[in-house]
Amino acid sequence: MSTDGTTVPFSGVPFSGVSFSGSRPDSVYYFGTCLVDLFYPEAGMAGIDLLKAQGLRVVFPQGQSCCGQPAYNSGYREEALKVARAQLDYFPGDWPIVVPSGSCAGMMKKHWPDLFKGEPDEARAKQVASRVWELTQFLVQVLNVKFEDQGPPVKITWHASCHAQREMGVVEEPKALLRQLANVELVELQRERECCGFGGTFSVRHPEISAAMVGDKVADIENTGAKAVVSGDCGCLMNISGALEGGKKPVRGVHIAQFLKERTHG
């Protein structure tokens, strides 16, 4: 990737010109991510179900594990490369790779090309990276989904993940999906774009600052009067839900895939 740090702020246009074009595919790969795997498998399944409901064949390669981001962001690039490389074998076809996390999708799409730079499998890694989509981005841009709300009236708010916004360029897509739900009132946060303070190892390396950040986020959420905070990234969700629960706040944190599935499939 370019070294000029270009992202696409202030727009919902995907980060880079995605090569997938034209008609919708009949199959997609699903990259579940390690956090979803261990902590939010039901959200992961909900994402698969949403895609299946659109008539797609969803392939979940059992050999997959993690995009490598934890090691990469901690400065252990060789270790990150080793794990990232292990993923490549499991996505051999030309199908899009859908990821229920903006952060992991961003790692694959934006950082893999750097991580594999100069490696013998650089071209292959770039090819895989170019097929990566964040889930809501794929639902909106490729599948153009239309949801019918079947749930009771509820007020919610949306927390935007930093990497979905700023690495994947996904800003409007998830909110557009939530706005399709007739009985869901979406109240935006005052500081929707501000980081919740998770930051991977940051949250344990600088627990006090992280706590202050998630504290501000929780206050912002409470001010909306929402019953649930919906997000597209499990890192943020673990952090925010953990703080809501720790502070005994009657607000539920829920992944957008799971929320959409609950609202549309009873």
Partner: peptide
């Protein structure tokens, strides 16, 4: 490490 890598700075 005094950074969550949120990219807010990069954006602006």
């Amino acid at each position: 490490h005094a950074c969550t890598m949120c990219n807010a700075c990069v954006e602006i």
